[in-house]
Design a protein around this nucleic acid. Sequence first.
DNA 1: GAGCGAGGGTAAAGCGACTTGACGACCGTA
DNA 2: TACGGTCGTCAAGTCGCTTTACCCTCGCTC
Lengths: 167, 167
Amino acid sequence: MLSSDLTVTPAYPLGPPLIGALLRMPADAVRARMIAGLHAAGFTDLVPAHLAVLRFPGPEDRRPSEIAAEAGMTKQAMNYLLGQMQQLGYLVRDDDPVDQRFKRIRLTQRGHAVARAIRTTIAEVEAELEEQLGAARFDQLRQLLIELNATPVVRGGLGSQAHGQGG
Amino acid sequence: MLSSDLTVTPAYPLGPPLIGALLRMPADAVRARMIAGLHAAGFTDLVPAHLAVLRFPGPEDRRPSEIAAEAGMTKQAMNYLLGQMQQLGYLVRDDDPVDQRFKRIRLTQRGHAVARAIRTTIAEVEAELEEQLGAARFDQLRQLLIELNATPVVRGGLGSQAHGQGG
DNA sequence: GAGCGAGGGTAAAGCGACTTGACGACCGTA
DNA sequence: TACGGTCGTCAAGTCGCTTTACCCTCGCTC
């Protein structure tokens, strides 16, 4: 490495790390861990975009539009991802038995295996964090994040159109 | 495959909100607020992708590759964004006075105004959160996030295959 | 029943953010 | 002065997502 004595890092007016960076960096890290975990578990045909399908409650027994809204994308984009994952054998799009307009996403065996792999990875990450921060502080952090997610800043921040309930 | 079970399956095996969702949702919300704040401040020609340039320490007096690595993208992609922002009058790419191989990003007046607008928005968000959670709990949250960002999970989580840290 | 509006799912075209690949410019070292 | 090693840049291609448009089904009204 050259850069020699040019390492002058003058005092930027920004100062301390801001809430945006503090939230973004661990979120990205966890996301990367999820992808790495999926690949390590043998699901090498999944790419980061597919996480939009697999996020929080999971797609099981839910409708494409619903998942799309919570992922913050159009139903067409979500449907594209669903088509990919169906072709890869992770899920099927069943007709809703009650209302024929709707579809219901059903995970296959392989799809459930993916969901389990994700939960395993997350549990792994949480265990590491619990070890790093200590159980008490980690629980504290999780509780504060739950409270944070309940604030209007988070609940209403994404949906200026105000229909995304952000599950 | 017409499944006859009309019973809804409310109890997902996922259970409580996991650390991934707990971090991702507020991070996305803050990101959306930053864009909205920039647009409200009159910088309507900036798109979410430009935030990669403006994130944490800011691009002032730094090198394109450096910013790219921290943003987790290739230098070509970063250079593309820098070119856009230069054309829009937010920054210039100066030659490094010491080493002619390097470039140094310099914010223009307009660029500094953008940086100020971002800081204003972040301060706004932080003030709202402080009001929602209370000053004590918000400080607690920020402190815990700082500790979280210091863990190997975040600091080295991305570098399983690559060496680019942060992102 | 038949007609109408509304909403969900799907298909096709286009855009934009980002990647891979290749190349000239420049520095440190020998 | 010739040689690796980077940095920044140009060009081409990929992929995720949006926009636009269409078809189908349901609830409502007649």
